[in-house]
Amino acid sequence: MRNKIWLILVVCIISGNLHSQSGKITFNRKVNWLNIIKKLPYLSQEEKDRTMLVWGKDTNKGQDYILTYVDSMSIYLEKESDENFGYNWSDDPDIILRNHSAKSTKDIRFLLGKKYLIEDDMPRYKWKILNELKDVAGYVCMKAETRDTVNNIVVEAWFTDKIPFRGGPEGFSGLPGMILALDMNIDDVNIVATKVELSETPIVLPIPKKMKGKATTYQDYNEKKMKHIKLSVEGKRNPYWDVPY
């Protein structure tokens, strides 16, 4: 009997969540330069060890991003820092604006100094569902993975069906629930939800008024990025100094 009451309670909470139409999720995105450098094919073992020795102490706190969604729309933006200590640099951020019912994008992406406006179909990901569970920001998440053909790596996503919005950070989507964590190439880049605020009342998406850039498609954007990565590695230079991971 006691179990039944507990079950009803859970059902109530879950069904309550089901009605939530909007939410704001804070993600921390951390690029682990050392792990990227350790995988560069043109460095000798001694150079990798030296990098570990000198730069091994990890003080990188990462950068916060916020994913806001209402109904089928979502926007993913860099969180404005409140710790600028008297220095404020250019803030012309990448914008990932998605319409999940029309499956379309209206993204602003920077690549090699150029600003692109990508109005395109939402990228489709081939997700493989795996047998692992983990808690992220208080939600039990299931693991899925997909192949990122641009960086040529495996991306692992942790999603929860308890947040029914089928999106995630960096424009990743298509799983039966919200993606709360992404691990790119295991530990090159880790994105983890740190705060989940769900609401039943619709909130206004922080869509910038001006969204201008050179029009392009994801296919073209990805080709440019892949070409740069290939050239950089050939030229023995870390590609991710110039392009985002």
């Binding site: 179990n3 059902v11 879950i14 997700w127 493989k128 569902i129 069906d161 799983l175």
Partner: peptide, 20 residues
């Protein structure tokens, strides 16, 4: 295991490579 239905459980259809 107590024969109570699980409501709003997610059910996924995967291909043989576990792709959703």
């Amino acid at each position: 295991t107590l024969n109570e239905p699980l409501i709003a459980a997610t059910v996924m259809l995967l291909d043989m490579d576990s792709v959703l």
